[in-house]
Write a protein that binds this DNA or RNA. Structure first.
Ligand SMILES: [Zn+2]
Ligand SMILES: [Zn+2]
Ligand SMILES: [Zn+2]
Ligand SMILES: [Zn+2]
Lengths: 154, 154
DNA sequence: TAACGGATGTTATACTATAGCTCTTCAGGT
DNA sequence: ACCTGAAGAGCTATAGTATAACATCCGTTA
């Protein structure tokens, strides 16, 4: 489906621990496990794909287990939901503002890249202002073909 | 929930007829009925809300009836799906490119405004190019408070 | 007529998400 | 030590969204 992500797993988990601590939240074993599954996946995972994997580790897992955990991880800015896919990816940068992030979804290999482009953010803000609209979160998801897929033969 | 849309219903339906004709597609009675329901609604409708209304007119309606009709209407650029809401709105302009449209979703009154802002489109194209990404359709949905709701008292 | 394609009917099922209640654990106050 | 409250997790059930697969109807045309 796609290549592995860049950042070492343990580093990402340590960083997650730090983020939760600073948010006054607890990265429990369950949450840590789910985050690890998402980090290890080669691409976006749906809640039920996650559930299937989680069940092998934690027999008691049921849908609410996963959805509650995902909610926690999103609130703490550790994962993103891709609306078009009903699927979840790890956040690639614990520091950015989750209101202002964009995703590039490859239709060929399924990978999703996360970017934070300030020109896009400015254009969105300006367009909203023109309409007298006060924006909160923005969902920006671009479908297309990624660089790797468009250079690879046929 | 929100005020009625601006364009007269019959005018919108006539225009839809014309669009389908020029696409070599047929706006059948079923499709026309579903489009009319969407046009008359004060805000986005989910597929099952639509189904409930359709059943009162057409006893045989079941989920595939609605989903197939919605697929047709989207292919012919007559309606849009709002990904965050799993709901559908009429297209406000049969002429624009559905790859490059944006939505402003009011969290207070539920209305969804459709805009086509070329500065946003350019910023998206440029950001994609920077990554070597070849973009197709873009999903751009801004949550926030619309002008009417932010000026209204309390 | 026969063959075909587009539209719709019909049944069943897959997939996504949440409600609501229980139980345990642990920290803070008495 | 005891009570209490809040957070986390378990558990059952159900709500909500979407599609697969096959059948039927009907108008066009070879
Ligand atoms: Zn992120
Ligand atoms: Zn790719
Ligand atoms: Zn439109
Ligand atoms: Zn509003």
């Amino acid at each position: 489906m796609s290549k592995k992500r860049g950042r070492p797993l343990t580093e990402a988990l340590t960083e997650a621990e730090r983020v939760c601590l600073s948010n006054g939240a607890q990265l429990t074993e369950l949450r840590r496990t789910v985050l690890q599954l998402i980090l290890e996946a080669p691409g976006p995972l749906t809640a039920y794909q996650l559930l299937d994997q989680l069940k092998e580790i934690r027999k008691s897992a049921v849908p609410p287990t996963v959805y509650r955990t995902l909610e926690f991880l999103m609130e703490n800015r550790l994962v993103h939901k891709i609306e078009q896919l009903n699927a979840f990816i790890p956040c690639s940068d614990a520091h950015h503002d989750h209101h202002d992030v964009q995703f590039l979804i490859c239709e060929k290999c399924g990978t999703v890249a996360e970017i934070e482009d300030h020109a896009i953010v400015r254009a969105l803000a300006k367009a909203a202002e023109k309409q007298g609209f006060h924006p909160g979160k923005a969902v920006v998801e671009l479908d297309g073909i990624c660089a790797a897929c468009s250079t690879s033969a046929h």
